[in-house]
Design a protein around this nucleic acid. Sequence first.
DNA 1: CTCACATCCTGGATGC
DNA 2: TGCATCCAGGATGTGA
Length: 289
Amino acid sequence: MPELPEVETVRRGLAPVFEGARVRRIETRRPDLRFPFPEAFVNRLEGATVVTMGRRGKYLLAALSSGETLIMHLGMTGRFTVDSNPISDARLAAFYFAAPPDPRHDHVIFELETPSGMIRATYNDVRRFGFMDLASTSSLAASAHFAGMGPEPLSDDFTDAAFNAALIGRRTPIKAALLDQSVVAGVGNIYACEALWRARISPRREAASVAGKRAARLRLAVCEVLSEAIEAGGSTLRDFAASDGALGYFQHRFNAYDRAGEPCAACGAPLKRIVQSGRSTFYCGTCQR
DNA sequence: CTCACATCCTGGATGC
DNA sequence: TGCATCCAGGATGTGA
């Protein structure tokens, strides 16, 4: 569920706490999340300073002074809570407050030394689909998580030419192609549905038949739904955090996702739900062709 | 190479 | 009420 916009929102929320902070202590409450923690995980983190908080696709990246980067994936239900607000911006203040302890699902505790004092950040993940890894910062792009990853959608790398090239010859439905992280990074089930709805392209259409103007429309739609969701994250996160305190994902009004039976906002026809490669797809059979 | 599908995980919703 | 089953879904591995 945390797709690119949610991960970007988490990055922006964590950056003021983590950047420049020294990792005083790490506590892992179990030996693994989805995968085991890497060798000497705690030792490799403790004492390091976080240089920058970045993101690639759906991955959160904490570059460390040690020369390694902490790679974090939120899976389905991964979220962070931070126990105090290190920044003076009142608009952001509500993002941070002490969440009630959740012993069953609080899996990693970060104790950070910051200019504002010690701050505790907690990684909570009910379904434990998330994971953490460490890799050398200088060879991060070549690491297993990122080697085959497609262009970052909100960067200059995501061109019409690159998108077209990624779709050539692919017989799979365009919906499945959008979920393929080698085509474009960071799109998940929700924003794939939303982008296709906006571009008025059927999720069932063969990927190879999305070319030229159609592909250009879809590429633009991907960029638009992602950037609008990031903007929405900035404003809705406050309400979200006020209710349960976590930096994780946020509610957003979608045009297609999870709206089966409701009228299409563009043409009024009832939206449909189908299953493609085991995932729900929501779309308008009338205006998406 | 491309593609479909099962797998991991847990809690909320639904069915009987 | 209680119990079983389904469903959400990102990344990965397997087999066709």
